[in-house]
Amino acid sequence: MSITLADARVVTPEGVHEGWLTIEDGRITHIGQGAAPGSGHSLGGGYVVPGFVDIHNHGGAGGSFPTGDPEQAVRAADLHLRHGSTTIMASLVTASPDDLAGAAAALADLCDDGLLAGIHFEGPYISTARCGAHDPALLRDPSPAELGGLLKAGRGHVRMLTIAPELPGALDTIREAVANGVIAALGHSDATYEQTIAGIDAGARVATHLYNAMPPLHHRDPGPIAALLQDERVTVELINDGVHLHPAMTRLAFTAAGPARTALVTDAMAAAGMGDGVYGLGPMTVNVVDGVARLAEGGSIAGSTLTMDAAFRRAVREAALSPAEAAEITSLTPARVLGLDDRLGSVAIGKQADLVVLTDEFEVAGVMRRGSWAVEPR
């Protein structure tokens, strides 16, 4: 099957140009400027950006990945697909070993089916002082042996582990994760600058939602934020929802790390795409008021109701990024984190036709996944 998308503003890593592209058998085969040869599907001047890649997502549409319920997971993935996220990693939260293993085993089936790009354990090896919306009673010191059991339950689909590097056993557990092809991410941590560097030296390569759930920057005690921003080996996640971060902090991270080391994430939970109300996040109860999710007990921010298209819009409007820069940090950089940038993450010849059509206001007008429309352009 072949389709040509015409009258488009095509956003490539090099910038934006008016033109067209052709898709054959689920891949991009041609990209051109000006009028398309022959007839094509006119997009009326809409932007074409790569499908968004979300490496930190707990759910949406009332469904929660931490439950391990396949029906809920499918519902959540579909919600985010309709908002342009063509690649999603399912994030779990702190729970008992049995509950984590059970959820991983259930979600591994959906990874086998291609619905999910992998599984992310956010906890339980995190700091009590910075646990946020995680149940402190279920936190525990990192254990390479326990991690091995969780990886076995995930059948090769566990792709990321968030860990606090200052905890006893953390560095050995980071090394164990990396040795098994799992991305080690530092976060929910009370680490010093030096402890953070030690975690990076042990193999950690991602900062879980930079700034959030870690000590703030201080000029005499730089802490983890400075270590993570300055190290060229680390990609930093940002939750660009206007709640977790001030736009100035988004710009600061982008300036320090650049687009190649900045990945926007949603950290979405079940309330994404839904109204205000009471929801679950693992074992925790969350109240959502005016679209902001907070723990019912204690009031900590508990994930977000963000979708990636909204994060893209805020990057352009609030952080003053260009469409090409916004596309890089919502797609190519996170794809690179997952090792998938050879086949997705940018609008380029030979890559998978995962595409989002955006209006002048950067609202979603169409979504294509693997060459088929999930949302037909209006």
Score class of each variant (00 low, 15 high):
116 L>F: 04
356 V>Y: 05
246 H>Y: 04
220 R>H: 13
350 G>I: 03
273 G>P: 08
358 L>M: 01
230 Q>F: 01
172 D>V: 08
341 D>L: 07
310 A>M: 14
276 D>I: 00
213 A>Q: 07
370 R>H: 14
135 D>A: 14
227 A>K: 01
335 A>H: 07
212 N>F: 08
196 T>Q: 01
165 P>H: 03
121 F>M: 05
162 T>V: 03
124 P>G: 02
70 P>D: 06
47 Y>K: 13
165 P>M: 06
311 A>H: 03
365 A>Y: 01
353 A>Q: 03
279 Y>V: 12
204 A>E: 06
21 L>N: 12
110 L>G: 02
143 S>Y: 01
114 G>E: 09
8 A>Q: 01
291 G>Q: 06
315 A>G: 07
125 Y>F: 15
69 D>H: 14
54 D>V: 02
198 A>E: 13
337 V>S: 03
178 V>D: 00
172 D>H: 05
231 D>I: 06
239 I>R: 00
21 L>K: 12
176 E>G: 06
80 H>E: 12
363 E>C: 08
209 H>K: 12
111 C>M: 08
226 A>Y: 07
133 A>S: 11
305 T>K: 03
240 N>H: 10
294 R>N: 09
39 S>I: 11
198 A>H: 09
81 L>T: 13
358 L>N: 01
203 G>N: 10
217 L>E: 01
254 F>W: 11
13 P>D: 09
94 T>Y: 12
134 H>F: 10
333 T>M: 09
151 L>I: 10
45 G>K: 14
60 G>P: 09
239 I>S: 00
91 S>Q: 15
188 H>K: 13
329 I>G: 04
209 H>I: 09
12 T>N: 02
285 T>W: 09
378 R>H: 14
358 L>C: 07
341 D>W: 10
210 L>M: 00
311 A>S: 14
308 M>C: 10
88 I>Y: 12
305 T>H: 07
198 A>R: 11
7 D>R: 05
37 P>I: 07
13 P>V: 10
266 T>C: 09
344 L>D: 01
82 R>P: 06
283 P>L: 10
12 T>G: 02
100 L>S: 02
155 R>Y: 00
248 A>W: 07
269 M>P: 04
330 T>C: 15
202 A>E: 04
349 I>D: 08
275 G>D: 15
103 A>K: 08
202 A>W: 03
341 D>R: 00
338 L>Y: 08
145 A>P: 00
318 E>F: 05
374 A>S: 13
5 L>R: 07
266 T>S: 15
228 L>K: 02
9 R>P: 05
24 E>P: 10
72 Q>G: 14
315 A>Q: 00
378 R>W: 11
254 F>P: 01
248 A>P: 00
66 P>T: 12
248 A>E: 12
87 T>L: 14
83 H>L: 13
258 G>M: 02
45 G>Y: 13
304 S>T: 15
225 I>T: 13
334 P>D: 06
330 T>S: 15
262 T>S: 06
159 R>A: 13
